[in-house]
Amino acid sequence: MDFGLLFIGLALLLVSYLVAVRKQTWLLAGFNEKNIKNKSLLGKITGRTFFLPLGLLVIIHSFIDYPYEAIVLVIAMLVLLIITYLIINRRLFD
């Protein structure tokens, strides 16, 4: 069991809760606030589409140990990030 991954996964779940439920969009860096129509929807999409699945995946990987674990996590993170960017670009930008 990898405690480092477990703590990272729990931190990602906390960020998911703060962004999706509590609408703390100030935690999200790198977006222009003037171009976003609905910040509440941005929080829901980012929290539920990116942070929640990534946090759960990291927690699951903290209990499982196999040779290419880091590569699988990076690929999963990039896929989730691309999906989130596509959803945000289609729904939220002017």
Score class of each variant (00 low, 15 high):
28 L>A: 04
30 G>S: 05
17 Y>Q: 09
67 P>Q: 12
4 G>Q: 02
49 T>L: 08
36 I>R: 06
13 L>D: 09
41 L>A: 14
92 L>G: 11
58 V>T: 15
44 K>R: 13
34 K>Q: 13
3 F>S: 06
16 S>P: 02
66 Y>K: 05
27 L>G: 08
87 I>T: 12
18 L>Q: 14
11 A>D: 07
48 R>C: 01
15 V>K: 10
50 F>N: 03
10 L>S: 10
26 W>L: 03
78 L>D: 05
66 Y>P: 02
21 V>Q: 02
45 I>E: 10
25 T>L: 01
20 A>C: 06
72 V>I: 15
81 L>V: 00
38 N>K: 03
68 Y>C: 00
78 L>H: 03
80 L>S: 04
79 V>M: 08
90 R>C: 02
68 Y>R: 05
44 K>A: 09
38 N>G: 04
73 L>F: 04
6 L>R: 11
61 H>P: 01
30 G>M: 07
93 F>Y: 14
67 P>S: 12
33 E>T: 13
90 R>G: 02
76 A>N: 04
79 V>R: 00
20 A>G: 01
90 R>K: 15
12 L>Y: 13
22 R>N: 04
79 V>L: 14
8 I>N: 01
11 A>K: 12
11 A>H: 08
59 I>P: 00
29 A>I: 13
36 I>T: 07
11 A>Q: 03
53 P>H: 12
22 R>E: 11
51 F>L: 15
39 K>W: 02
12 L>H: 11
13 L>P: 07
62 S>M: 10
68 Y>W: 13
61 H>L: 10
77 M>R: 08
92 L>V: 09
24 Q>V: 02
49 T>V: 11
16 S>N: 08
65 D>I: 10
70 A>Q: 09
12 L>V: 05
21 V>F: 14
29 A>M: 11
21 V>I: 14
42 L>C: 10
94 D>N: 12
89 N>D: 13
94 D>P: 15
43 G>C: 08
68 Y>L: 11
67 P>F: 12
9 G>W: 03
4 G>H: 00
2 D>S: 15
36 I>K: 03
10 L>V: 15
45 I>F: 04
72 V>M: 07
70 A>L: 11
6 L>A: 14
75 I>R: 07
6 L>I: 05
36 I>C: 07
24 Q>W: 06
48 R>I: 10
40 S>R: 12
45 I>R: 02
42 L>K: 04
78 L>E: 05
40 S>G: 12
33 E>L: 06
5 L>H: 03
41 L>M: 13
27 L>C: 04
24 Q>S: 05
14 L>S: 13
25 T>S: 08
4 G>L: 00
25 T>W: 00
53 P>V: 13
4 G>C: 01
92 L>P: 12
61 H>E: 01
51 F>T: 04
25 T>A: 04
20 A>I: 01
78 L>W: 02
41 L>S: 12
3 F>G: 09
52 L>D: 01
82 I>V: 14
71 I>A: 09
58 V>Q: 05
21 V>Y: 12
50 F>K: 03
24 Q>T: 00
64 I>W: 13
92 L>A: 08
40 S>M: 07
1 M>E: 00
21 V>R: 09
75 I>Q: 03
45 I>W: 06
48 R>Q: 13
35 N>P: 08
21 V>K: 10
78 L>C: 07
25 T>C: 07
73 L>N: 07
74 V>W: 01
86 L>E: 14
79 V>T: 10
40 S>P: 03
21 V>L: 09
2 D>F: 07
